[in-house]
Simulated assay, not measured.
Amino acid sequence: MKAESAGTWLLLDAGNTRVKWALADADAPLGQWRVQGAMAHGLLDTLIAEWQAAGIVPARVLAANVAGGGVRAAIEGALRVCAPAAAVEWFAAVPSRAGIVNGYANPAQLGCDRFAAAIGVRALVPGRPVVIANCGTATTVDAVTADGTFIGGMILPGLRLMSGALARNTAQLPQIDAGTVLPPTFADNTHDAILSGCLAAQAGAIERAVGALGGAACIISGGAAPLIAPALNVPARHVDNIVMLGLHAALLAGEMGETC
């Protein structure tokens, strides 16, 4: 196994259902990874073996975690084995970083994933107002102004949560599968009507945000983005792993928070 050079960074996005990771050279352009991967929370006991097989020995680690203490502990255990000498930072929302001013009433209460996503879109679309729709377990729809101020956003159940609630509470109607073919707006069966309604709700929130932030670009990300993006009536750019891109942009900006 060949160890990585001292100029490599490990980026970690621990979301509500999966942990995603990517290894980047310190001088690599935004979003260019040496190697990347993802695993469900239930498989985190295999993380050490996966990282060792991939030769993950970074000099620096930046991790965003919204999944709680158990997931953080599993990641920390893997880092102690695979990257014992690395400088590790647990990314958090702060008043300002990497060109983004955090406009939350209490900046520390903003989810670290949403703050990272804002940094990511600022790097991708500088100098324009942008709406970020991150469509995962929850759907977050956030706004960044042209001068780089995160002004706030919306949080709603993700597509699976929304459709699953209907499935559980309407005589066990079928739950929506992520690979379902998109139905027409006015569906002629109950299964498709559930999906059509949930898609309309998700798309409507995003469109409302774009309309409220006049002239805004729209970036959509997350596991449900391929289903939701075609339902939008506004132009949107699909970007994979916007949180990971934001973490990378934060490191490229040359700023670092407290390490642990």
Rank of each mutant, 00 (worst) to 15 (best):
A217P: 00
D25R: 13
V81Q: 03
N65V: 14
A85M: 13
I119E: 11
A38G: 14
V234S: 00
V71K: 02
A86W: 08
A59P: 03
A209R: 03
R160G: 13
A249T: 05
D192K: 04
S221N: 05
A67H: 02
Q109R: 14
P126D: 06
L10D: 02
A74L: 00
A138M: 08
I48A: 14
Q32T: 13
L195T: 07
A6Y: 09
V239I: 13
D25G: 14
Q202E: 01
L161W: 04
A200G: 11
I220M: 07
A98H: 00
F115I: 06
G70W: 02
A63S: 08
G179C: 06
I242N: 03
A212M: 12
A67Q: 02
G136W: 01
G148V: 01
A231Y: 03
L47Y: 04
C82A: 09
G99N: 11
A64I: 08
N102R: 10
R122E: 03
D240E: 14
L173Q: 11
W33M: 05
G211D: 13
K2R: 14
W33K: 04
R97C: 11
V243P: 01
A105S: 13
A92P: 01
L47V: 07
R60W: 11
G214Y: 03
A93K: 11
G214N: 06
L232W: 09
G136L: 04
T180H: 10
A171C: 10
R80Q: 15
G152D: 06
T145H: 08
I155Q: 13
G37N: 07
G148Y: 09
A22V: 04
H238Y: 05
C260K: 09
A98P: 00
G103W: 06
T180C: 10
N189G: 05
N102M: 09
D25Q: 07
V57R: 14
A92R: 13
P126A: 12
N134K: 00
T145N: 01
A209W: 00
D240M: 05
V239Y: 00
A40F: 04
T145Q: 06
R122C: 09
C135E: 00
A53D: 15
A187F: 10
R18P: 01
A231P: 07
T180Y: 04
M39C: 13
E76V: 10
G69E: 15
V125G: 04
T17F: 07
A231L: 08
G120T: 11
P129V: 04
A236S: 01
G211K: 09
A78G: 08
I206D: 04
G68R: 07
K2Q: 15
A49G: 15
L159T: 06
A236E: 00
L124T: 01
L30R: 03
C198A: 15
E50C: 06
A73M: 14
L213N: 07
G214R: 13
G257L: 11
L10P: 02
V88I: 15
D177N: 13
